[in-house]
Amino acid sequence: MEVPILKQGEYLIASIQSALTDADLLQLRDVLVEHVGRYRSRGVIVDVTALDVMDSFATRTLRDIAHMIRLRGAETVIVGIQPEVAFSMVQLGLTLEEVVTRLDFEEGIAYLNSKKGASTKLGSSLPRRTR
């Protein structure tokens, strides 16, 4: 089951539609890391609302995705972790560590926009000083 990836301005949105196999998750990772460069994206939202289970493999792969995308210079935010999924992750002792999570898609966009605001301010002040 391939995950559809939408481009919205400077952001990529990966909206998981159903249960994913390990191979699907690895493919999602590779495609996102490649697309960030191809579309010069600043941020990535991975919507896991429809994911049935976040086991050790899914958690580790999402963590890898966020770290790899950071290395490519963009931000990742995971949205839509359901209450029962959060419960089982805690029971299993799984963590997403420093990966940013937000309640839903709207909050994810708001987070990326806030990061964009910060970098724009910094970016616009630098050229002025050098001129």
């Binding site: 289970v53 086991d55 050790s56 999924v85 419960f87 089982s88």
Partner: peptide, 13 residues
Amino acid sequence: PAEATLIATAISE
């Protein structure tokens, strides 16, 4: 539902 998710997660592992 929360128990069913725990069960599904254990089976997955």
